[in-house]
Design a protein around this nucleic acid. Structure first.
Lengths: 234, 234
DNA sequence: CGGGGCCTTGAGTCACTTCAAGACGGGTGG
DNA sequence: CCACCCGTCTTGAAGTGACTCAAGGCCCCG
C-alpha cells in the first residue's frame, strides 16, 4: 500500500502532498458515487442544502459567487484531487460548475462523517486539503490586492501552465479550457482588460497566441518572474 | 464538560462554532506556552522555519506578505480563538504581527502532532478552524475582486463591528485598533483612498467620526447593506 | 456558406493612484 | 499645564490604468 500519509506531518505545516491515498480513495468510493458533469453544468449552487462532499478525480471546475447586481466572482478553480463542498450553516456558499468534463466522487455528508469518526487519518487529510485551499486563496488575495491586470493575467497563465493536464512540457504549449469571461471573473477585472493584457504579454514576447485559448510559452520562468515583479520600475 | 465538539458536524459543512473546547484548550496549554506580543511586534516572519502553531487567546494580529517591491498585502486579520501558523514545505508563508497586545498559546509542531495522533477530535477541530479561515479568505477575495473602495471600507468597518471586542452595542461605537495603512494594505488600496472613503461614508450618514479610529455607527444594518449593494445604479 | 458565440480593438470617461501640503492628536519634556 | 513635535490622517491637484460602451473580426458549428 502506497503510504503518502505521514502521521508526523502537520496539516498546517506540510507542503502539498500527492493526491488521494489508496485507502482514502477506497473509503470514499465505498460510500460515495462517481458522477460526471459536462462543461458549464453545475454540481450545486450557492445556498443549496449542503448534503454532499466531493473529490475531483479528473477535470476542472469553477467555484463562484454571485453579487446582488449580477456580477460574479470566481473564488477558485478546482483541479484533480481537490475537495469541494464548502458550506456554512448547512448551505453551500459557492456555486460549483464544470469547466471541462468533470469526474468526481460524491459522498453524502452523513457517510463522510462516519468515515471521519472511523478513521482519524481522514480528518487529518481533510485538514491538509483545506489548508491547501487556504494557501491558494491567500495567493489569490495577493494577486487581486497588489497586481495590475497584465500581471494578474501573467500569473494566471503561469499557474495554469503548472498543471500537467493543460501544459505540454515538450512543446511548451498551454491549452486553457476557460473562457475570457471566466478569467476576468477570477481576476476581478473585465473581459476587455484580459484581452488587452494577453495582447500586451504577446508583444512583450512572454507568450505567443496559437488558438484563442492556446498559448506557446517560450520561457515559463520568465513569465512567472514578470508576474511577481514590481508594477512600476524595471 | 462543555461539549461544543459535535462528532456529526462536518468541518466543511458546519457553521462557525464557539471557540476552544475545554479539553482542547487544556491539551494545548499542557504542551504549549502562553506568550504575549506588544503592538507591531512579530510572532514570526514569512520564510521562517515553521516550528510552532499558535492559538489566539486575546487580541488582534495581522497576517501579511511582502512583495519584492516592498508593497504589502495583509491577507487576514486574526482574532481571538483563531489558529495561525500556516506554512508550506516547513516555512511560514505569512508574517504575523500584533495589532493590539496579543495573547497566544504557542505549541511546538512536534507536540501538536502528538496531540493530533492522540486525539482524533483535534484533527477534526483543526479542519474546522481551517475551513473557517478559508471561508473568510473567500469573502475577502469577493471584496477585492468586485467592490469599489468605499464599499470595501464599508464592509471592513462592518466586519470590525461584528467583533464584540471592538463594538459597543449599547452606544454603537466602534473602536478600530488598526491604522489606515493596515486597512489600505488589507483592502488592496492606498491610505488616501481609505481616508476619502471614510469621509464619503460619513457624508452619506453611514458612520460618524468620533476619534480618528473610533466611529459611531447609527445603523449597522444600513452600513452592511451599503457594502453589498451594487457599485452602480441605486 | 451563413450564423452566433467568443474574442479583440477603439474611444471616452471615471475611479483610483501618486505626489505634495496641511491639519489633527497624542505623548513628552520643559 | 502648556507647548512642542512627530506620527498619523486628511485634503487637493494632476496623471493614469482600467471600465464601459460600441463596433468589428475570428472561429466553430450547423
Amino acid at each position: 500500500m502506497p503510504d503518502n500519509f505521514e502521521p508526523d506531518s502537520n496539516p498546517l505545516v506540510a507542503g502539498d502532498k500527492a493526491g488521494l491515498t489508496a485507502c482514502e480513495e477506497a473509503l470514499m468510493l465505498r460510500v460515495g458515487t462517481v458522477r460526471l458533469y459536462s462543461p458549464d453544468s453545475p454540481a450545486y449552487r450557492e445556498g443549496d442544502q449542503a448534503d454532499n462532499v466531493f473529490i475531483i478525480r479528473a477535470g476542472i471546475a469553477r467555484a463562484s459567487r454571485l453579487l446582488p447586481d449580477g456580477r460574479r466572482q470566481i473564488v477558485a478553480f478546482l483541479w484533480a484531487n481537490d475537495l469541494f463542498g464548502l458550506a456554512e450553516d448547512g448551505a453551500y456558499i459557492n456555486t460549483i460548475e464544470a469547466v471541462t468534463t468533470l469526474d468526481v466522487v460524491r459522498t453524502p455528508v452523513a457517510a463522510m462523517n462516519e468515515l471521519l469518526r472511523a478513521d482519524a487519518r481522514i480528518s487529518l487529510d481533510m485538514a491538509r486539503r483545506t489548508a491547501h485551499s487556504l494557501r491558494e486563496a491567500q495567493r489569490h488575495i495577493l494577486c487581486l490586492g497588489q497586481l495590475d491586470v497584465p500581471r494578474r493575467v501573467a500569473r494566471f497563465i503561469s499557474d495554469c501552465a503548472s498543471h500537467v493536464e493543460l501544459f505540454d512540457e515538450r512543446t511548451n504549449v498551454l491549452c486553457m479550457p476557460m473562457k475570457r469571461l471566466d478569467v476576468a471573473d477570477y481576476l476581478g477585472t473585465s473581459i476587455e482588460a484580459v484581452a488587452r493584457a494577453v495582447t500586451q504579454l504577446e508583444s512583450a514576447g512572454l507568450i505567443e497566441r496559437r488558438l484563442r485559448r492556446d498559448f506557446l510559452i517560450p520561457d515559463p520562468a520568465l513569465l512567472r518572474d514578470y508576474a511577481t515583479r514590481a508594477t512600476h520600475g524595471s
